[in-house]
Simulated scan of single mutants.
Amino acid sequence: MNNFKLIFRILKYIEACMEYESFDDDNFTASHFGVSKALFLNILRTLLEAGYISGIKIVTDKC
């Protein structure tokens, strides 16, 4: 999958969740977007650093 398409899908998902009081984090997963966990986390980290998203914390753990 093209990373720009993935970025668009992530941002679109976040935008859709803004209509509700709580964020639907059950479906905000790599598997929901059909990509590896590593790619999903790297894209999220890039979006955070670029200032496109805020309010989330990426926790990486060896376990």
Rank of each mutant, 00 (worst) to 15 (best):
L47D: 01
A30I: 01
N42R: 15
F4L: 12
R45I: 04
Y13M: 02
T60Y: 12
S22E: 07
A30E: 09
F33W: 04
D26P: 00
T60Q: 14
E19Q: 14
Y20V: 00
T46H: 15
L44D: 01
N42C: 09
S22K: 10
F33H: 03
I56D: 03
D61E: 13
F40C: 03
G34F: 09
N3G: 00
F28I: 03
T29I: 03
F40K: 02
Y20G: 00
Y52C: 12
S31F: 08
A50V: 05
N3I: 15
E49K: 14
G51K: 10
Y13G: 01
I10D: 03
D24L: 06
F8R: 15
S36L: 08
G55C: 05
N2S: 14
I10F: 06
L48Q: 11
N42V: 01
T60M: 08
A38E: 15
C63P: 09
E19A: 09
R45V: 02
N42G: 07
G34A: 05
G55Y: 05
K37E: 15
L11P: 03
D26E: 11
K5T: 12
E49L: 12
G51M: 07
F8M: 12
G51I: 06
D25W: 06
F4N: 11
D24R: 06
C63H: 13
I53F: 06
K12T: 10
F4Q: 14
E15K: 14
L39P: 01
E19G: 14
F28Q: 01
N3C: 07
F33T: 05
A50H: 10
G34V: 07
L39G: 02
I53Q: 04
D24F: 03
I56A: 05
